[in-house]
């Protein structure tokens, strides 16, 4: 039962990442990120119950409140204020991007077999999905032009790292997790302020326009 829930949630996270790659409406992309974080929270809760590790409940609660509710809300508010709702044509078309992501997933699963816990079973799926998610996040980051999408790509990478942590270690020390969560929320706030300033100056959040500095 536990194994099924874990695999289902991990697979769900991978699906949200694929949908993010195929999506151009910013609001939907943000919601997808929220769903992804919610699934991460469920993974943490499931492990907490199955291995009776109470400190993982705190991790789960933090993940859900911060990443599934607070950060998406903040990003949506930012998008609303700016009034730009759609991603422009990415550097790579959607079908081609999806194909690349498929390749990245294969790579992620292949690397995961090197881990002690990744040789088989649930750990294999968690680590495999986490590494694929990491690669897809990096891919999103280099192919998208909108500032908000780049932030979401960064946050996806961060979710992937948390999933690796759950897959290979069943959680980092609690105080470290608290510190990391604090830093992440701070980083998102800073990014939000910076996006607003960029939009104020360039009247666009197309970061491919930020290309004056060279050499």
């Amino acid at each position: 039962m536990t194994a099924n829930i874990l695999i289902f949630c991990a697979a769900g996270m991978l699906v949200t990442a694929y949908l993010m790659v195929g999506q151009k409406a910013l609001f939907t992309t943000i919601r997808l990120y929220g769903v992804q974080s919610l699934l991460l929270g469920i993974v943490a809760t499931t492990i907490a119950i199955a291995e009776s590790r109470p400190e993982l409940f705190v991790t789960a609660a933090l993940t859900v409140t911060l990443k599934a509710i607070l950060i998406p809300w903040f990003l949506m508010r930012t998008v609303d204020r700016i009034g730009i709702h759609r991603e422009i044509e990415p550097f790579l078309s959607v079908p081609a991007s999806l194909l690349v992501c498929l390749g990245l997933t294969v790579v992620g699963y292949r690397v995961s077999t090197g881990f002690q816990e990744g040789a088989r079973g649930v750990g294999h799926h968690l680590i495999g999905v986490a590494l694929s998610l990491l690669l897809i996040g990096l891919f999103l980051m280099v192919t998208r032009k909108k500032a908000i999408t780049q932030i979401l790509a960064l946050l996806t990478v961060e979710n992937a790292v948390f999933l690796v942590a759950l897959g290979v270690t069943s959680g980092m020390p609690l105080i470290v997790e608290l510190g990391i969560s604090f830093d992440v929320i701070l980083a998102v706030l800073v990014l939000g302020v910076l996006v607003r300033r960029i939009v104020g100056r360039f009247e666009s959040m197309d970061v491919s326009r930020l290309s004056k500095l060279k050499g």
């Binding site: 500032a147 980083a187 800073v190 990014l191 910076l194 300033r197 960029i198 100056r201 360039f202 970061v207 930020l210 290309s211 004056k212 500095l213």
Partner: peptide
């Protein structure tokens, strides 16, 4: 313009 660009890339 350039300082916002630099800050964004840095971040």
């Amino acid at each position: 313009d350039t300082s916002l660009e630099a800050a964004w890339k840095f971040l």
